[in-house]
């Protein structure tokens, strides 16, 4: 199988690799880089568990070929977690017991942080709308909405 040479950054580190065209970004970060915080659920863009950031914007990594990310800056849940960018959001999820089964959590955190960067004081309906692409199988999500709302309020008080 022919491969394509790509170079990108993942969580700030330069990575280059020869990849087959059909390899998606989720499988690349998980299988080739060992960054298994990005979860693979449905593999057709419905569940959002594979959400990560490319050039600062959230995307479905199962619907992005790694060759499309050539030259891009990719950030995974490990990057956001290690840098401390979402430490408060993670603490709020823990305190509010918002993990549910935990499978959707990395994608929920990526998506919630995306909302909080764009909108400092979201209504609960806005939080639900923004997270609507991350519904998984547990149902409910009240605690998740609580945790996101609490984080937004705490960040506002700090700023």
């Amino acid at each position: 199988m022919t491969t394509t040479r790509i170079a990108l950054t993942v969580n700030g580190e330069s990575v280059s690799a020869d990849v087959p065209a059909r390899l998606n970004l989720a499988d690349f970060v998980r299988d080739q880089l060992g960054l298994t915080g990005t979860h693979v659920g449905c593999e057709h863009g419905v569940c959002g568990a594979c959400t990560l950031r490319v050039d600062g914007e959230i995307v479905r990594s199962c619907l992005t070929l790694v060759v499309q990310a050539d030259g891009c800056a990719v950030e995974t849940i490990e990057g956001l977690s290690d840098s401390g960018e979402i430490a408060d959001l993670q603490a709020a999820f823990r305190e509010r017991n918002a993990l549910q089964c935990g499978y959707c959590t990395p994608g929920m955190l990526m998506t919630a942080q995306d909302l909080l960067r764009k909108c400092a004081n979201p209504e609960r309906t806005e939080i639900r709308e923004h997270l609507s692409g991350n519904y998984c199988r547990c149902t409910g999500y009240h605690a998740i909405v609580d945790a996101v709302e609490r984080t937004a309020k705490a960040r506002q008080r700090r700023s």
Binding site: A21, R22, N24, E43, H44, G45, R60, C62, L63, T64, L65, V67, Q68
Partner: peptide, 23 residues
């Protein structure tokens, strides 16, 4: 292939099997 948000689900579900993708 432009954004791939309809094409990639079709590929992943093997509803489409093109020989070549033109990005």
């Amino acid at each position: 292939l432009s954004g791939g948000q309809s094409l990639l689900p079709a590929l992943n579900l093997r509803l489409a099997a093109p020989a070549v993708l033109i990005d």
